[in-house]
Write a protein that binds this DNA or RNA. Structure first.
Ligand SMILES: Nc1ncnc2c1ncn2[C@H]1C[C@H](O)[C@@H](COP(=O)(O)OP(=O)(O)OP(=O)(O)O)O1
Ligand SMILES: [Mg+2]
Length: 461
DNA sequence: CGCACGAATCT
RNA sequence: AUCAGAUUCGUGCG
């Protein structure tokens, strides 16, 4: 009730604002917009001042590091102000040459390396401007079962789709994983797929320029004969255009599937069907789309064990539900261990704040999953962990005794307790600490209550 | 709904 | 050092 009223008010407010502010300017900009694009050239939409400016703001907002020329996003504004005419002219005449991307390696969760390709900040603006115009065009043709990198489509909704499939009796899943997907995209095929929807040579040319701009790996230049850079603004869109062909094939074959970037799950009703599908789709991907299927990682199995977008499925009385997979659970717990570990230097307030923002984000994402028990255990563990931390802190300052009295112990009791020599963990569990540093006091100090937060988020959904 | 800043998650 | 897309949440402004 309250909710709908709130949204109504907000909608009314917005309607009012738009009516008040822009009756005239709105009409004018529509006219001029049509004028600019009356010949229907995508090129002019991309190079439109407004579009380029949006692209610039977007790149600047990200605050990402610079590319091979070392220009930062702070320097970007002044540079563009100075050179925008030349830049636009170069783009229009197809004489614009994107710079090579900068090779940077970052660790993946599994320990291996991810090879980023970081374009120049200027190139990022151009890519973004192009992406902004291409995205709405391709959104119209993309599959309803594709979720990754797409506006208005969340990982959570992909997971919900999976749950729905399971509840429809599809209890086996073919989990396909592509090896270094972006790096293996075939240029010619990609351009061909783009061409099916956009015939304008200027666009195709510009995309190819970005694909073939090469890589600077340290002092060495490397050609880019295949792949779209992990770090390019249009790369995710291009990746979806590429695998849209897979979506079309899966749809043609009548499969139930969900795709998130290169993570494609096909749902079937028997293991044998799964094996058959795995074989033929692998064939299709490698022969027709020329991408590498990760033989070890891809498999047919049960959604109850599989990790998809951080979730796996659990099964209740007669229906399935999502829940956080073991891996993310372990990961977040060891993150909390790390946060509460470095005892010296950081204040308790900072630590509690750090825990709060981390866990708010985490629970927010996983809130569509079942995890009440996990969070209750985590709450308990965390409280002990913090008591331990406080105890240690008191020791450092040498005020255990005073602190205990302040929390309600008599001087005699405090004296006895202060002199005990137990491990921190046992102290944290001990009755004295539990009584003095109560849950309530921890909460007042700012320790977040995970299961409570979880319930309140669930109540809204 | 738009913008600025902060954060989390997925790929 | 470390990029990109997308989705969420929080604070503030319109
Ligand atoms: N942090 C990132 N920055 C930019 N692009 C990313 C990032 N993470 C993932 N991607 C894009 C590029 C990847 O090719 C694609 C699929 O991600 P992912 O499957 O995790 O890695 P991968 O396919 O490159 O290697 P792997 O062989 O380990 O599967 O999503
Ligand atoms: Mg992959």
């Amino acid at each position: 009730m309250r909710q709908s009223q709130k949204t109504e008010n907000k909608a009314d407010y917005l309607r009012r604002v738009t009516l008040e502010g822009s009756e005239q300017t709105g009409a004018r900009s529509v006219v001029s917009g049509e004028k600019r694009t009356q010949n229907g050239l995508l090129r002019e939409k991309v190079l439109d001042r407004n579009n380029l400016n949006r692209a610039f703001v977007h790149v600047k907002r990200n605050k990402g590091a610079g590319g091979i020329d070392g220009m930062s996003v702070e320097e970007l504004g002044p540079y563009l102000k100075e050179n925008n005419v030349k830049l636009i002219e170069a783009l229009r005449t197809e004489s614009y040459e994107p710079q090579p991307v900068k090779r940077v390696e970052i660790p993946k969760p599994d320990g291996s390396k991810r090879q980023l390709g970081i374009p120049t900040v200027v190139d990022r603006v151009v890519q973004q401007a192009l992406q902004q115009q291409l995205s709405p065009i391709f959104e119209k043709v993309f599959s309803d079962n594709s979720y990754g990198f797409r506006p208005h489509r969340s990982a959570q909704s992909a997971v919900k789709k999976v749950v729905a499939y399971y509840n429809q009796g599809y209890h086996y899943v073919v989990d396909l994983d592509l090896k270094s997907y972006f790096d293996n995209v075939n240029h010619d095929l990609l351009i061909k797929f783009v061409e099916n929807y956009i015939s304008e040579p200027w666009v195709l040319h510009l995309i190819r320029k970005f694909l073939t701009s090469g890589v600077m790996n340290g002092r060495f230049f490397e050609k880019s004969a295949k792949g779209t850079p992990q770090g390019g603004n249009i790369s995710p869109l291009l990746a979806n255009i590429y695998l849209n062909e897979l979506d079309k094939e899966l749809t043609r074959r009548g499969h139930k599937f969900v795709r998130y970037a290169d993570d494609c799950n096909i749902y079937v009703k028997s293991k044998r069907a799964g094996e058959r599908v795995l074989k033929s789709i692998t064939q299709f991907l490698e022969k027709e789309l020329k991408v590498e299927v990760n033989a070890e990682k891809t498999q047919v199995g049960s959604p109850l064990r599989l990790k998809f977008l951080g979730f796996s499925l659990g099964v209740g009385r007669n229906s399935a539900y999502p829940r956080p997979h073991q891996k993310p659970k372990q990961r977040i717990k060891q993150e909390l261990t790390r946060i509460t570990k470095r005892s010296r230097g950081v204040s308790l307030d900072r630590i509690l704040h750090e825990i709060k923002q981390k866990m708010q984000g985490w629970i927010q994402y996983y809130s569509i999953g079942k995890m009440k028990i996990f969070l209750q255990q985590l709450d308990k563990w965390l409280r002990s962990r913090i008591r331990q931390y406080i105890w240690k802190q008191w020791k450092n300052i040498g005020t255990r005794y005073k602190a205990l009295i302040k929390l309600g112990l008599t001087p005699k009791q405090a004296k006895i307790y202060v002199n005990t020599r137990k491990g921190y963990w046992r102290n944290a569990h001990s009755k004295t600490l539990l009584m003095t540093i109560t849950n309530k006091r921890l909460a007042q100090r700012g320790l977040i209550n995970l299961s409570k937060l979880y319930q309140s988020i669930q109540a809204k959904a």
